[in-house]
């Protein structure tokens, strides 16, 4: 076994009289201080509103941003209003009103598809539940800002207008 048991819990005499350890700590912090004092550029801070992570480093493809609804070639939603996402949703934030489709090949489509983004926990279960790849969370939008709570009820037209947020 490569396990070493230290019976003094890492507290030898030198550590117990504090002073060498205090000096060691001061050296660590002052090293950081001088390093950053002479070269502030290397600090990994991102100036948020002016600089953004997705621009600087790019988002991971697994990133779950705001939802979007994908479209068929004719511009209609791929969603067939099967209610699987609404059923899978743990926070019950998806509201769907199905209606009959004019296209004979398609049985039904959502007349209303509404997501309450304030209730959404961004777990991604709706995306996993969808059999038609109709709902995705790859918009890359993470900063949702509105002036009222009512505006956070995102409707079908907004969700469908959003494009894929980042390149592969």
């Amino acid at each position: 076994m490569a396990m070493v048991v230290k019976d003094n819990n890492g507290q030898g005499f030198l550590e117990k009289i504090y002073i060498p350890e205090i000096i060691r700590g001061l050296l660590v912090t002052s090293r950081h201080f001088f390093k950053n004092l002479f070269n502030i550029k290397q600090v990994p801070t991102i100036y948020y509103p002016e600089e953004r992570t997705e621009v600087k480093w790019g988002l991971s493809p697994r990133w779950r941003g705001r939802h979007r609804l994908t479209r068929k070639d004719d511009g209609m939603p791929r969603c067939t209003a099967c209610m699987l996402c609404a059923t899978a949703c743990p926070s019950h934030c998806i509201y769907i009103e199905p209606t009959e489709s004019a296209d004979p090949a398609v049985e039904k489509y959502p007349a209303v598809f509404m997501i309450d983004e304030l209730r959404c926990v961004f777990c991604g279960l709706c995306v996993e539940a969808c059999p038609c790849d109709a709902i995705r969370m790859d918009s890359g939008i993470y900063s949702l800002t509105e002036y009222s709570r009512a505006n956070f009820l995102y409707e079908k037209d907004v969700l469908m207008a959003t494009e894929r947020g980042y390149k592969d």
Binding site: T29, S30, H32, F33, N36, L37, I40, V43, P44, T45, Y47
Partner: peptide, 10 residues
């Protein structure tokens, strides 16, 4: 400012 520099902040 000093605490920021010591903690790799701005």
């Amino acid at each position: 400012k000093q605490s920021a520099l010591m903690q790799d902040r701005i």
